[in-house]
Design a protein around this nucleic acid. Structure first.
Length: 480
RNA sequence: GCUCCCAUCGUCUAGCCCGGUCUAGGACAUCGCCUUUUCACGGCGGUAACAGGGGUUCGAAUCCCCUUGGGAGUACCA
């Protein structure tokens, strides 16, 4: 039996971090087992669903490298269509069958009646379940007549009075008591199916073998189990992955800040880093590695290593993962990415050797790709140093003005575009031997004179990357 | 309210299923030290956890029960 998994988002907004994680797990499981990853669009909520969000979500998924094998844009004739809004006749057909079998019934109760029912049950200390007359077979002929006459109505599933059991891959054995749910609506009076119903129809018809989804669906599963049973359909394996929570330990939502993948994408986080971090939130690498690419784990991804408890989404660690991926990346790819950033004209004009040395040096200091242009600007191009207190202090030492004037002379002699490391060493030697400056005053003094900073990367790497004109202007500013 | 799920450092987790090797390991963050100045680098090290209570057992982070805490679901949302 080949594995078929699915990710089934609702196009009601941008792709959420939690959704992306679920999608990733499904994708990984498909890849690990040589199975098929299906994308299905659950757009039965007319009010909230918008067509444009479907494209947006697919695009974000694609950005993360989570590519589906089947979906609206890659249909398999055996299983489509992949949008629930295009499968309405299918849902109605099976709902009719359930009615014929006496497992579902038309319900004409109004909202008010339903509300009264609930209130009464509550007052009588009973479960707040449906208790309308329409569940009784003696009213079904009347019901059919009213429907035949064109009356719009909901269809409810007649819930069997029995308990259900699920062997969840993450949660283990879950027992649902027999009074957990009442007769629930499967088809709304507007002709659209409800989630717990169409989800089962689709998973069944699409031959889904493993349902990997969020824990928020764990309670729903009992309804779905009932439908599978009524349909006499094979029940897939379920894996209910724990939820992502925010710093207040509440389910992650908009009020926790950046929760859509798109935001991270716009800030140029690396997609590999997003996948890496999200994967680790609730799943652990068998060798406890924490930095890896999707390709590294497709052979060892399994449903066995999920954590049963919810995981707090932590931006700090994500940032760290991102910086690790930057360090791991080869220079050529990094250069390509940097050059796509705005305000990198200077960078782009440099020689391949310069670029290589530049990213090699800076990747130790950058957490994000956009940090590169920032660092180039701060460390290499800025010729008007900010007079910070530490800098003023260094400038006030008695040796510093001497160093500054020596360096100034040397730099002004230059006509080539860059100073070499050897030349820099020569200056250091001169200051040391001829001027008798050593230790802290030497290093700090030269650093201040050349960079206008009291700290930063190793001078022997930084200075050869700095254009001579910048050095000249910087020193001129410092001399004032 | 009712039902279901969860419970190891501040955070993510390993270990739990198949009790002893756990004076509980790793990572992020944090702190300290080191590196011929500095660090937004690197190295080394520190602080820090089995929620509480009962069992079972020679022995429990690991198995059982209760309590507490947290989460989710209880819609003609998904």
């Amino acid at each position: 039996m080949t594995v078929r998994v699915r990710f089934a988002p609702s196009p009601t907004g941008y792709l959420h971090i939690g959704g992306a994680r679920t999608a990733l797990y499904n994708y990984l499981y498909a890849k690990a087992t040589g199975g098929t990853f299906v994308l299905r669009i659950e757009d039965t909520d007319l009010e909230r669903s918008k067509a444009e969000y479907e494209a947006l979500q697919i695009d974000d998924l694609k950005w993360m490298g989570i590519i589906h094998d089947e979906g609206p844009d890659r249909p398999n004739p055996k299983y489509g269509p992949y949008r629930q809004s295009e499968r309405l006749d299918i849902y109605m057909k099976y709902a009719q069958e359930l009615i014929e079998k006496g497992m579902a019934f038309y319900d004409f109760c109004t909202d008010e009646e339903l509300e009264a029912m609930r209130a009464k049950a509550e007052a009588d200390n009973l479960d707040p379940h449906y208790s309308g007359k329409w569940r009784e077979p003696q009213h079904w002929e009347e019901a059919k007549a009213r429907v035949a006459a064109g009356e719009k109505t909901a269809i409810r599933f007649k819930v069997p009075k029995k308990s259900y059991e699920l062997n969840d891959k993450v949660k283990g054995k879950v027992v649902y008591p027999d009074n957990m749910v009442g007769d629930f609506v499967i088809m709304r009076s507007n002709g659209l199916p409800t989630y717990n119903y169409c989800c089962v129809i689709d998973d069944w018809l699409m031959d889904i073998t493993h349902v990997i989804r969020g824990e928020d669906h764990l309670n729903n599963t009992v309804r779905q189990l009932m439908i599978y049973e009524a349909l006499n359909a094979k029940i897939p394996e379920f894996a209910h992955v724990s939820l992502l929570i925010g710093h207040d330990r509440q389910k992650l939502s908009k009020r926790h800040g950046a929760t859509s993948v798109n935001l991270y994408r716009n800030e140029h986080y690396l997609p590999e880093a997003m996948c890496n971090y999200l994967c680790l939130l609730g799943w652990s690498h068998p060798e406890e590695r924490d930095i890896f690419a999707k390709e590294d784990i497709v052979n060892l991804f399994s449903l066995e290593r999920f954590s049963a408890s919810s995981a707090m989404y932590d931006l700090e660690k994500l940032k760290w993962v991102n910086s690790e991926h930057i360090k791991k990346m080869d220079n050529a790819s990094l250069i390509t990415l940097v050059e796509k950033e705005p305000e990198t004209e200077f960078f782009r004009k440099q020689t391949p050797e310069w670029k290589n040395a530049c990213v090699e040096l800076l990747k130790r200091y950058a957490q994000f790709v956009p940090d590169f242009p920032k660092l180039v600007n701060e460390l290499i191009l800025n010729d008007d140093p900010e007079m910070t207190d530490p800098l003023k202090e260094i400038l006030s030492w008695e040796t510093t003005p001497k160093i500054l004037s020596f360096i100034s002379e040397e730099v002004n002699k230059f006509s080539s575009e860059f100073v070499t490391e050897t030349e820099l060493n020569g200056w250091m030697d001169h200051v040391k031997k001829e001027m008798g400056v050593k230790g802290k005053p030497l290093f700090q003094g030269v650093r201040a004179a050349l960079t206008g900073h009291d700290h930063g990367p190793d001078l022997k790497f930084l200075i050869p990357l700095t254009p001579i004109n910048v050095l000249k202007n910087r020193i001129a500013h410092l001399n004032k």
